[in-house]
Nucleic acid binder design. Structure first.
Lengths: 130, 130
DNA sequence: CTAGTTGCAAAGCATTTGCCTGTGG
DNA sequence: CCACAGGCAAATGCTTTGCAACTAG
């Protein structure tokens, strides 16, 4: 189990070099630069393996498919930013919010997720209004 | 367009009386108490119609399917709570957080979502630990 | 009457799995 | 060598759509 194949190499590299959470399709497209014949199934299977490894974690987002990022990049408490223009996800480090008091009586809060929406740096560069 | 049928009546009532965002399946099950033969397709179609009406809004949540709630219930800025036990979603009114500064330079934040996780009042009643 | 509605079944879409060929070690 | 890995295609699960029968107004 866990051989070193060109496919896995390419998938690991893509996620590593991206520096942000990637969707399965994003991983596929990036990794296909190294291994053109790469299939989706392999991407999904490899991602699943890497999650079981503890190498990756899944990042579920509202209204779009899961993203994946390296566990160590995710080790500090952080949240995510989604660009309304290009749809890419980014990490947002830190979060010093007190959510415990927000829930109604009788409800116990044990965790939270924050998702910011807006425009990423790249999409802001191109056009400044519209 | 927009007739008054028993099915729509039942679907509207279910969402209204629930007082919390419902998934399509939850709507189906509740509405089937009034209209046993009700099919899923009708639920999805009616929900879509009600969203276009402006009666309902869709509530996308990370890692689970969309919930739906009345627009007026959603008119005030609010967020959602998901019970880890029963999976039901609830509204959490209010939110006075400053997220604008959290994003990296070059990123413009125009909105945000907060999802709280934990245990709802009903699930807390039954068992207090475990 | 007749256009909007419905239930059923088939179609989509993203993700998963089966199966058989290919290959790392 | 040979069990793991990969590609293809079929299967899944949830949502949408096509279609013929049904019904509100």
């Amino acid at each position: 189990m866990n051989r070193n194949t060109a496919q896995r190499e390419a998938i690991r590299r893509s996620l590593q070099e991206a520096g942000r959470p990637l969707s399965a399709v994003e991983v596929l497209e990036l990794a296909q630069r190294d291994v053109p014949g790469l299939g989706v199934a392999t991407v999904y299977r490899t991602i699943k393996t890497l999650i079981e490894d503890g190498t990756l974690i899944a990042v579920p987002l509202p209204g779009s498919s899961d993203r994946y990022e390296h566990r160590d990049a995710a080790s500090l408490h952080h949240h995510h930013f989604i660009c309304n223009d290009c749809g890419r996800a980014f990490d947002v480090p830190g979060c010093s919010m007190a959510f415990q008091g927000m829930a109604p009586p009788g409800f116990v809060v044990s965790g939270h997720d924050v998702v910011l929406y807006g425009r990423c740096d790249r999409c802001n560069q191109g056009s400044n209004g519209s």
